[in-house]
Design a protein around this nucleic acid. Sequence first.
DNA 1: TCTTGACATTCACGTTACGTCATGGTTTAT
DNA 2: ATAAACCATGACGTAACGTGAATGTCAAGA
Lengths: 247, 247
Amino acid sequence: MDYTVKQLADLADVTPRTLHYYDEIGLLRPSSIGENGYRYYNDTAALRLQQILFYRELDLSLDEIGAILASAGFDVEAALHQHRQALQQRISRLNHLIDTIDNTIQHLRGEKEMSTQELFQGFDDETQARYEQEAAELYGAETVRESSRRWKSYTAEDKARIMAEGGQTYRDLAHMLDRDPADADVQAAMGRWHQHIRAFYEPTPDILRGLGHAYEEQPEFAAFYEAIHPDMPGFLRRAIDRYVDML
Amino acid sequence: MDYTVKQLADLADVTPRTLHYYDEIGLLRPSSIGENGYRYYNDTAALRLQQILFYRELDLSLDEIGAILASAGFDVEAALHQHRQALQQRISRLNHLIDTIDNTIQHLRGEKEMSTQELFQGFDDETQARYEQEAAELYGAETVRESSRRWKSYTAEDKARIMAEGGQTYRDLAHMLDRDPADADVQAAMGRWHQHIRAFYEPTPDILRGLGHAYEEQPEFAAFYEAIHPDMPGFLRRAIDRYVDML
DNA sequence: TCTTGACATTCACGTTACGTCATGGTTTAT
DNA sequence: ATAAACCATGACGTAACGTGAATGTCAAGA
């Protein structure tokens, strides 16, 4: 009970060309070849095709699929895990793009023309690096001194209260991760966040924005907020951007 | 103040080859060409490159970018909106793939060999269609009568309570969208959901699973749950799958 | 001035996973 | 016998460049 190309192709919902190609690259050879040169596939071949298509659905390259099917000792689970990671990254990237598109649309609507600088922000690596450095410098040079001066002026009670309030704000926000950053409750929490920062120093809008950026981009910050929830850094950054837009 | 290929390339963080290519396809022509055949780009060209790269970051094809930059009357916002949709779809698809990978890994761990049939489920369009149809038929034929019989037997008070409880369950779930579907609280809510369904009829595990499927795939259902939250349909389906696995 | 190294140019093939003719032989059904 | 439907093998096209290869040009140091 062998299949011809068309038969197997119809069965598996691919085109004959696909089978030709898989033969050509050695991924799926016919089980036999007739004297007329026709390809014939048996059930074993059909099963292999199923597996190929299965992995293909998972978006693996034919090379990878070949490797998986070739070695019986291959660690399929590890491979799938790794691939899962890759997919997650793609999703992250796509979410970033959607963010950017949303911002762009907002700008278009507001007739606020984005300057080329703005357009490039977040895309140009150098600009990015400079931006972060500036934020760090702003946060560092002027501010750190001011911050430690203010902090020292507080009583132990004050300090405990301030830290508790800050923590509460972050926990509140963690419960609103599924909302729109523009949501009134979220923005109210951002107001409390702003107050919390002001307990240390007086941040300019740019510094606030820089903080949001750092929360998302700088590993040490990101790790802290990710500990609260994996989506926290991105959410915070969006909420901060929104908050500063509204100031 | 003109740039050579290398200079502009470095500035924009692309390779010279990219500029060659953009010239070749007419997307970005040099502002002038020297007697030696060298390409020279002025600031206008540089700006255009910025815009090209901006749109490229949004994952638009060079063709589309060319169209956008060509026509001043082009509806950029509409284009971006459409592209946003496309990105969302990709994300949906990627999430689907991740789901499948997770299932596959589970099967691998449990040494439960997936039959070819199982492997194919969800990929084969025909199987898919048949599955949905069966779910609809099950839900329809036997069940609808039973459902309306039970419903009529309730008092107005009962009805109000049942609806309120159901609504509450969905709202509870909406606050747990960021959790794992296997989370204890989520699964507890799924238990309440099950009870809610049982107020109408006695669902078999397959029917429950079919419901989860329908919530995600059938537009009318999906629209209802998306109104609660965009991620609700997918989350519900995963939670239901998990719940039924545990029954 | 000569040489060297960094830059410039134009081919032109490689990449992925097939789609799409083109040309010609084979099988099957009428 | 003839047409329809299938088979085969090239071979080019796709998107957006990467990667040589062969060769010409320019700025700078010995």
